[in-house]
Amino acid sequence: MIEVTYLVLLSCVVFVIGIVGVGLNRNNLVAILMNIELMLIAVNINFIAFSNYHQNLEGHIAVFFVLAIAAAEAAIGLAIFVKLYERYHSIQADKFSSLKELA
């Protein structure tokens, strides 16, 4: 029988994979954004699991809002990437350092 703990563990694993992915793909901003989506989905799994456990729909509301905000974030993020690519012909995160204080 499936328990809530398994789902919590699953979401933890997916979340960690997301973090690792962010660390690995620093050369590619789109990939970073995708890994962030992965992390968000892990959090949402948690919400839904506990919503099921407590028989309370407010968790669904939270997921609903997370999904909506994540969609907004993806749209804005991708638009920014397009602009960046246009300007620097690259989407490597490390290359954008014009705001950085000179050491």
Binding site: S51, H60, V63, A74, L78
Partner: peptide, 23 residues
């Protein structure tokens, strides 16, 4: 399976259908 049928469908329609297409 967890009883979140609306969100599941929203995930497929909005995420897989729209946002990922954007990606």
């Amino acid at each position: 399976g967890l009883g979140a049928e609306f969100l599941a469908l929203a995930l497929i329609f909005i995420y897989v259908g729209a946002v990922m297409a954007l990606f």
